[in-house]
Nucleic acid binder design. Structure first.
Length: 298
DNA sequence: AAGGATCACAACCGCAACAAG
DNA sequence: GCTTGTTGCGGTTGTGATCCT
């Protein structure tokens, strides 16, 4: 915390309130080219008279690529109700199940749209709850029923309050990976890419051939994967990840389109990049947070 | 048409957890 | 183990838009 006179001066000069388009532009341009390893230094380096916290919030809730700007659909609404009934006000947890939506957005939507309904009639989520229990029994049911494939909670949830709710674990699946936190579109933005031929992120489609639970990973087997934008190849999909600036090489021998994951490696690490079934006939590549790092020597 | 009430959403605040020194 | 700085989360507030009387 800067306690010098100059530091206090800086503090006094910090702007508050709504962001101007110019500030948005500055922040976006800076983060897309430099990242945000330390939020407190971002406003200084980006030439913004804001504090790091404000920049972080603005980026996460508004500027981050991949955010949906459209209305929350009834399907999404049902997911909110479902998970709110079991997780409570854990907005960030709920947001993990709604790609492209932020915790703030979900929280606001709850307070402005759903809370009153829920208070009037808490049973409105009963159908959703029954779906959760259905998933617990047979996740494949959900896959075939065109509903988001419910994944388990983040791995490190031993202290998760959700386990205490109603005295039992009401997560749809008690094991398995975290649902993709970021969707494909969040990995790429046209401004990220220097190659002009890749000026549009591809959409990937496929259909689930089979589903099975195994160990710590739920596996989906696809009969095919289609990358709709012909400018892209599977290599691009994997290689064009957040690690694209490090010289990773795709291990095509180890990759298998028909299974749940790809592998690619750098000189020191092997990355496993899962492909998760998200909704019917749509596939998303999971985010970097999903990658399971494996020391290559193992 | 005016003004108060309500709504929707962006942004702020405070706190807790965590990591680094 | 303590201190300090940073980050993430959830509650709350502020503000502009819209609705209602």
């Amino acid at each position: 915390m800067a306690k010098t006179k100059s530091g206090e001066k800086l503090k006094h000069r910090q702007r508050k309130g709504f962001w101007s388009p110019e500030e948005d532009e500055k922040l976006s341009r800076f983060i897309l080219s430099h990242g945000h390893s330390c939020w407190t230094t971002v406003p200084i380096k980006a030439g913004l008279q804001r504090n790091g916290k404000s920049c972080r919030l603005r980026w996460i809730n508004y500027l981050r690529p991949g955010l949906k700007r459209d209305m929350i659909s009834t399907e999404e609404e049902e997911i909110i109700l479902t998970f709110h009934s079991s997780l409570g006000n854990k907005w960030s947890m709920i947001a993990k199940y709604l790609p492209g939506r932020t915790d703030n957005e979900i929280k606001n939507y709850w307070h402005s749209h759903l809370k009153k309904r829920w208070l009037k009639s808490p049973s409105i989520s009963s159908s959703s709850e029954s779906r959760v229990s259905c998933v617990e029994r047979n996740p494949q049911t959900v896959v075939s029923n065109h509903v988001i494939s419910f994944q388990g909670p983040p791995e490190n949830t031993s202290s998760s309050p959700s386990h205490e709710i109603n005295g039992n674990n009401k997560y749809p699946c008690s094991s398995g990976p975290e649902i993709p936190r970021l969707f494909f579109s969040e990995w790429f933005s046209s401004s990220d890419l220097t190659d002009s031929s890749h000026n549009q992120a591809p959409s990937i489609e496929g259909s689930v051939l089979d589903y099975q639970e195994s160990g710590d990973v739920d596996q989906f087997h696809y009969n095919e994967i289609m990358i709709n934008n012909s400018n892209w190849t599977l290599d691009d999909v994997v290689f064009g990840s957040k690690c694209q600036k490090q010289e990773h090489k795709v291990d095509r021998e180890a990759s298998d389109c028909n299974s749940y994951g790809f592998f690619f490696s750098s000189s020191t690490m092997t990355y496993e990049c899962s492909v998760e079934y998200v909704s019917y006939r749509r596939i998303a590549v999971v985010s970097a947070s999903q990658w399971r790092r494996k020391a290559k020597e193992t």
